[in-house]
């Protein structure tokens, strides 16, 4: 499948800023999906509200662009009503972890078969750069002019604790690893979660002395610590600041029975 068979060219130009990490994730996802030769007509894409939640509207298949934070709940209904459909959710840090936090943890716990991809750019990009639940401590945003006094969520660790079957975190600097994880997530039965730490040069980098997207990618490279190559106890958290680190890698890969199997819903489809 060509790139523009997968993405809708008629919806170009897209809304993403120059240097945005979403394009990298879209590219990796297209490659993963294409290499697995999954049927596009039998895959539904669901997004909430925000920059990353717009991705489903650019994909040449069924798309549900929903309310803010609720994409996983919408996807749960769609998936259980039509179990022959694969469901893929694109979301962001604000959509998933703040307003949608309850649906996120309960989605992991319920373990309905879906792939959830969170593009974590550490900021509310679409509304102009307000602090989010993953904005690093002491970083600048329009709502933290004296530096962010809160500490960030670790979305991947939450997903592990809440019971997701597959959890991985990479950055937009780690495209090959990310593509591999997206393939694993798409093939996983049950709730699969991939977090991608991404750059928002317009609204995050610009206010934090990294206006050039390559500066943020360099930051990701320097800060990232492979989970499987370091003692787990030291790195089981994301501590995104210049002195800290981003723990990357596969966090969990397990095969708990998914909800559809447990209630026998797959059979009537």
């Amino acid at each position: 499948m060509e790139l523009f068979e997968f993405y809708r060219k008629d919806r170009w130009p897209h809304v993403f800023c120059p240097g945005c990490g979403i394009g990298t994730v879209m590219n990796c996802f297209y490659r993963a999906f294409n290499e697995l030769e999954l049927p596009l007509d039998k895959t539904a894409f669901i997004g909430g509200i925000g920059c990353s939640s717009r991705i489903p509207l650019y994909i040449n298949s069924d798309a549900l662009h929903t309310t803010h934070g609720r994409a996983i709940a919408f996807a749960t209904g769609l998936r259980l009503a039509k179990p022959e459909l694969k469901t893929v959710v694109f979301t962001g840090d604000g959509d998933l972890g703040a307003i949608g936090g309850n649906h996120f943890i309960n989605g992991c716990r319920r373990n309905v078969d879906m792939t959830v991809i969170c593009i974590n750019n550490n900021i509310y990009g679409m509304t102009g750069g307000q602090a989010s639940i993953t904005t690093p401590h002491d970083y600048q945003s329009t709502t933290t002019p004296y530096g962010n006094k809160e500490y960030p969520f670790d979305l991947a660790e939450i997903a592990v604790a809440a019971g997701a079957n597959y959890v991985a975190r990479w950055t937009t600097r780690h495209v090959h690893e990310l593509t591999r994880s997206l393939k694993a997530a798409l093939q996983k039965k049950g709730f699969a979660f991939v977090e991608v730490v991404s750059q928002c040069p317009t609204n995050f980098g610009r206010r934090n002395k990294m206006a050039d997207p390559t500066q943020m990618l360099e930051w990701f490279r320097q800060s990232s610590v492979r989970r499987d190559k370091t003692k787990a106890a030291e790195v089981d958290h994301v501590d995104l600041n210049l002195a800290g680190q981003i723990t990357i890698g596969e966090f969990v890969d397990r095969n708990r029975e998914c909800y559809e199997e447990l209630i026998g819903v797959g059979k009537h489809g």
Partner: peptide
């Protein structure tokens, strides 16, 4: 998990 999730899920199901 809450009523927001309930109505979101039934909208999703309806599109199925």
């Amino acid at each position: 998990e809450d009523e927001i999730a309930c109505i979101s899920a039934i909208i999703g199901a309806s599109w199925g």
